[in-house]
Amino acid sequence: MKLTKRIGFWFLAGGLVVSLLLAGVVSSLASSSPDGLEHAAQRGCAVDADGEIVAGSCLAQQEREHDLAGGWFADYGVRGLDNDWLATGLAGVVGVLVTFAVGGGLFWLVRRRRPAGE
């Protein structure tokens, strides 16, 4: 098999489009139930309708609010945007682009350079 040296534009573009669709559109269909860790962390505690712990003994008891809870995209929303579907989608798109830029940029910077002329 001939080894392709490059990832190729179409594979990269296709992969990004799939990621953007998953984070930007499909994410609104995601389950909003507590996830595995949250579930385990709340075991043993009584939780009210808002998800606040009211009694008992459990892992999540001393949990603090996130230091950046007031941030623009906190909790995968957009500050000031009340439409959940739009906010989640927009946050997802931002997340995919930021992750690709930060990750791709970092990996590109530290990559092993080919000798000139190859």
């Binding site: 953007l20 791709g104 990996f107």
Partner: peptide, 24 residues
Amino acid sequence: LDDRLAPMAGLVAAFVFAAQMLNF
């Protein structure tokens, strides 16, 4: 990490971010 793996790794990170939003 070479010219091929670096962008691939960036794409994998972006895909993992997207997939992590999809709670089932």
